[in-house]
């Protein structure tokens, strides 16, 4: 079983995130691997462990700091790490990012075929959940998204997908792109041995030229959307916190009535 996991470098959720020139500001000290990609790494490790053989690749596309994302995947147990970085990728939209990831995935796949690509359900910085779909389409592989359960057998992957109105079971032939939700599993903690090994493990660095992608087809020039303006939302005025001294419920009710909400 050969599985590639896509992992994204995202700003720490607890830190103060911001925009600079229309892009999310990213710095190494307050960012790491997108939390939801831990579920993707875990899903891959479990499948390889269950199969008793196989390898897990971690792939990220991003600036120099993004290497932290694949290092984290190595700490969790991934066997190989690839970091695609190139100044021409700056400003890419989801379609450009998908194109870069797909080209890198094809390069790995051509060396020795992959069975699956597993992604997280969303990157917690933008939360678009669009990339897995765009990636599957670019590769021309089966698309199995938002998996709460994932099983692989007889050349097919089967997922359970929780939609608001129904739980669906969907199957498709390999190779497939699968995105997993945070319900799919409980990510493991890295152990000390892996943390030490990950520090020294090699990370394959590729530029756009290495994967045969022309920068003008993926970067800011190719993007179909551009952020025009970004501003912090103003703090709410007149916030009040009152301690219940016996009439807290009445205070709550009257507040809603005065606001016309009840």
């Amino acid at each position: 079983m050969r599985i590639l996991v896509t992992v994204k470098f995202t700003p720490d959720l607890q830190s103060h995130r911001s925009f600079t020139d229309g892009s999310v500001t990213r710095t190494a000290d307050d960012g790491s691997m997108n939390e939801l990609d831990e579920n993707a790494v875990e899903a891959a490790l479990q499948l390889v462990e269950a199969a008793g053989e196989g390898e897990v690749y971690a792939l990220t596309v991003g600036g120099p700091d993004a290497v932290a994302a694949v290092r984290k995947a190595l700490q969790l147990g991934a066997n190989h790490a690839i970091h695609v970085s190139d100044e021409e990728i700056a400003g890419a939209d989801v379609f450009g990012t998908a194109k870069v990831l797909a080209a890198a995935i094809r390069k790995v796949h051509e060396e020795q075929p992959l069975d699956l690509v597993i992604t997280g359900m969303a990157a917690l910085d933008g939360l678009t959940s669009m990339l897995p779909t765009a990636l599957a389409a670019d590769l021309g592989w089966s698309q199995l998204t938002l998996a709460s359960e994932l099983t692989v057998a007889d050349g097919e992957a089967t997922i359970v997908r929780h939609m608001p109105d129904a739980h669906e079971t969907v199957a498709a032939p390999l190779p497939a792109v699968v995105s997993v939700t945070d319900e799919a599993n409980s990510p493991r903690y890295p152990n000390f041995k892996l943390i030490m090994a990950a520090r020294k493990a090699p990370v394959t660095q590729w530029s756009l030229a290495d994967i045969g992608v022309d920068g003008v087809t993926v970067g800011a020039i190719a993007a179909r959307t551009e952020v025009r303006d970004a501003s912090p939302r103003p703090e709410k005025a007149d916030r009040q916190v009152v301690t219940d001294t016996g009439d807290g419920g009445v205070t709550l009710a009257n507040f809603l009535i005065e606001k016309g909400l009840a």
Partner: peptide, 25 residues
């Protein structure tokens, strides 16, 4: 992030709020 925060036990606050709102309705 609350416009109105009530520091209290929901088991005290909610029944009173519900009763007041029902009365209003």
């Amino acid at each position: 992030i609350a416009d109105l925060g009530i520091v209290g036990d929901l088991n005290d606050v909610l029944p009173q709020a519900i009763a007041t709102l029902q009365e209003h309705k």
